[in-house]
Design a binder for these strands. Sequence first.
RNA 1: AGGCGGGUAGCUCAGCGGGAGAGCAUCGGCCUUACAAGCCGGGGGUCACGGGUUCAAAUCCCGUUCCGCCUACCA
Length: 882
Amino acid sequence: MKTEQIAKSYEPEQVEKKWYAYWEENGLFRGEAVSDKPAYCIVIPPPNVTGTLHMGHALNNTLQDILCRYKKMKGYNVLWQPGTDHAGIATQNVVERDLAAKGADRHSVGRDRFIALVWEWREKYGGLIINQLKRLGCCCDWSRERFTMDEGLSRAVREVFVRLYEEGLVYRGDYIINWCPRCHTALADLEVEHHDTESRLYYIRYPFQDKEGHLTVATTRPETLLGDTAVAVNPNDDRYSHLSNTHVLLPILGKPIPVIFDPYVDTTFGTGALKITPAHDPNDFEIGNTHHLERIKVIDENGVMNEMAGPYQGMDRFECRDKIVADLEQKGLLEKIEPYQNAVGHCYRCKTMIEPLLSKQWFVKTGSLGKAASNAVRAGKTRILPANWEGVYYEWMDNIRDWCVSRQIWWGHRIPAWYCQSCGAVHVAKEAPARCSACNSEDLVQETDVLDTWFSSALWPFSTLGWPDTTPELNTFYPTSALVTGFDILFFWVARMMMMGIHFMGDIPFKDVYIHALVRDAHGKKMSKSKGNVIDPLAVMDRFGTDAFRFTLAALAAQGRDIKLSEERILGYRHFVNKIWNAARFALMNLKEEPQQPKDGSYTLADRWILTRIGQVSRKISGFIEAYQFNEAAGLVYQFVWHELCDWYLEMAKQALYGEDGPVKDAARSVVHTALAAALKLLHPFMPFVTEEIWQRLPGTNESIMIAPFPQDDEFPADEAALQEMELLMGVIAAIRNIRGEMNIPPSKNVHVVIETASDRDEGILTRNLAHIRTLAKVDEASIGQGLAKPDKSATAVFQQTSVHVILKGLIDFKEEERRVAKEIGKTRKELEASQKKLSNKGFLEKAPEEIVAEVRARADSLSVRLTKLKQNLSLLEALDE
RNA sequence: AGGCGGGUAGCUCAGCGGGAGAGCAUCGGCCUUACAAGCCGGGGGUCACGGGUUCAAAUCCCGUUCCGCCUACCA
C-alpha cells in the first residue's frame, strides 16, 4: 500500500469504509472491564430505535467521538457505551401505522401478538441508526451495545420500580394527568408542548339559585361547565364578598353549585369569577381538593362527551363546545365572546390537543430524589457546562413535581404490579406472585400500563454496565466521565439520571455534563420535516465526506450558541481536508522510507520553528478539548496546519529537500515526517478517516493512529529564538510580497531588494535565510546590511526595525507608490496616536499593570520608528517628482 | 408573566477588561514541479442604541430596543 500512487485529491468513500472495518476488526473500540490504564467512559444518549440520523445526532456523536478518540490517544481505557432506546410511544405509533395500512389495529391483533410485531419491526429496522453512527465514524464499543428492552435492562427497571415502591417513592393515585386522546395515554408534564393558540373567552351567566341575577364567569372551555362543581372568587374581592353561602345554577343542567372563596383566583382576569371543574383542569383539581369538591368527569378517553354530559353525550369535545355555546346563546346566558390568545397543551408526539383528565396513574415521588440531584451539582460533584445551564437545572429541580410514569400503551416495560381480583390488594414485585398474600387468591391480574420510556433511560449509566449485578464494568466505569447532550433533554433525561444514579448507586452518574447547541438551518430556524428545511447528514457525508462534515460541526460548536449550518461552510472544510491530503502527498513524495534521527546541528531555522510550534499548539489543543471548547480546538488546528505548516514550513523545507546538503536534507526529511505525523494526530479526533489513511501510508507506522500517543509539548523543543527569528524573516518576506501585490508585479518577474537592518542580529538572521527570501518573495539580487541607503526608484516597507526597499525601476508608476506609502503613514499614525494617548495618561501609567505599560511603550516605539521611516520614504518619492 | 441567549465586516460567526478577528463572498495578480478544492496581495466594521463603572470597555453594570428559545396552573 505504501508504494502505490497517491491520488491528486482525496476520495472519501472507499477510505471511510475500509478504515471503519479495520478499526472494528482490530478491536480498537473496546473498553476493558479491567485495566491498568485510567478509565474514561461516556454513555451515549440512546437514540430512538425508530430514529434515523439527524443533525442533532450528528453533532452530539461527533463531539463524543472527539472526546473518546482524544482520550484513547492520551492513553486512557476508553469505553463509549452505545445502545438504543425502545421509544415507547414513537415505536408503537410506527407499528400501528403499519397495521392500519393493512386495515388492522393493535386491538384486533391483541397485546401479545402486537408486542411480537414490534420486536419483529425492531429486528428489521432497529439497526438503521446504529449503522448511521458507524458511518459517522463513532468509536463506540459495539460489543457492548444495549437496548432498553433487553432482558438485563428490563431486570434493572423492575428492580428499581419495586425498590422505589417499597421505599414509598412510587405510588398510585387519582390525579389530573395530561391525556392524549389520540395516543390514548397519559403524558408527563414535560411531554406536553404549549402552543400559543387563537381562542375565545366566553362570558357565561350562572344564575343565582335563590335570587334574581347571576354571576358571570369567563372561560375558554365552555364544554367543561357540565362538570363544574363550584364557582370560585377571590376572598378579597369586594365585588363578591356578599356571596358567601350562595349557590348558583349550572347553566343547561340547572344543578345548584356553591360559590367558594379561594385566593388562587385572579381578581383582574375576566370577571374575577372562575368556574371549577376538578376532573378536567389541573388547577381546578387542586382547588377541588382543598374545598372537598366532587369530581365529575364529562369527557372520556376518546375526547368524547360521556354519560355525565346529559344531552351532549356522544359528541366530540369540540363539537360539544359549539353546541353548548349555541344553547347558552339561545337561553340568554351568553354575555359575550372575546377573542383571546392562550397557550394550549399539545401532545409532543402527535400534536393533538391535550385533555386534562382525572385518572389513576403511577407516580414517582420526586421530592427527596430531586433534592439530592440538585445538591450534587451544588456541591460540585457533577459539573454542568456551560455553567449557565446549572441555573436552568436548579430552577427545574427546585420546582419539580411528581413524575407520572404510567403510560397506557403496550410497548414498554409493563409495570410489575398485580391486582387481586378477589380482595383488591395490590402487589408490586419483581416476578409475578403466585397468590395474593392478603386473601390467598390465585386470581391476580397484572397492571396493563407500561412505564414511561424515560424511566428506563434514567437508569442507562448503570443498567448498561450490568446493574443490578455487581460487575467489573461498574467498578471501572461508574461514575462515568462525561455526558454529552442537548439542552432539550436536560430535564427529561439528565435530571432523572442524576436522581436514579444517586439513589441506587450512591454516587453521581457522571462527572461532567456538557450541553451542546442545537443545529439549525442557515437562517437559524429549527430544522423540521414539516418546514422542509432539514439537511440530511447522510447526504452531506455523501457529498463532502465524513471528515469534512465532522470538522464543520466541531468548528461551529461554540459554547452557548446554536449552530447555523450551511453547505458553503462544509464545502470550505472539504477544501481543508483536501489541503491536508495534498500536504501529505508532498511529504510522502519526499519520504520513501522512514528518516533517520538527524544530527543536532543540521536543523534549519524553519525546522526549529515548526517543532516548537507543534509543541505549543498541541498543548493548547489539549486544553481546548478538555474544556469542551471544540470550536477553539478546531480553529487552532486549522490555522496551524494550513497557515503555518503548509504555507510556511513546507515551502521553506523545499529548500533543504531539493538542495544538496546531505545532513540538512536528512534533518528536513525527519522534521517533515515528525510534523506531518503530529498534525495527523492533532487532527485525528476531528477527522478520523483521512488521518488514518495518510498515517497508514507514512513510513515507519504500522499500528492505527487511533492508538498513537497524542502530541505533548514536552516532546518538542521550546526554542524561543527560533520563534523570534522566524517572525523577522516572515515579516520581511510579507513586506516584499505586499509591495509586489500592491504594485501588481506578476510572480514571474523577480525583483531586486535592499534590506536595511538595524542590528547585527537582524542582519545575520536575514543573511542566513536569504535563500528563503529569494524563493518566497521572488527576489533575485539582494543586499542586506546596516546603513544601506534607499535606492532610487524603489518602494519601501518597514517591519519592526528593518526597512525593505524593493527596486521598481521601470516596473511601476511612482504616483501609485506615493499613494501606497501615504496610506501606510495614515494607518501607522492612527495606531501610534492611540498608544501615545495611553502613555500620556497619568492614570494609565500609575494604575495599569507594569507589563501592559511596557507593552504599549514598546509598541509606540516601534510604531514611531516605522512612521519616521515611512515619512522619509515619502519625501524621497516626492523628490523624484520634481 | 418569568428566565435564558443573541444583535461585531456583504453573509455565517469567534473574541467577552488592555493593539477589532476568522471562514465564505468580493477586488487585483498568478496554472510557481503537494494542492486552481490552489498560491500571493488588497478593500471592507461609530462591535444595536443610551447612560454608568474603570487609567482603559466590543468585553463589566444599568436602561432602551429588536430577534430567538425555554419554563409557567390567569381561567
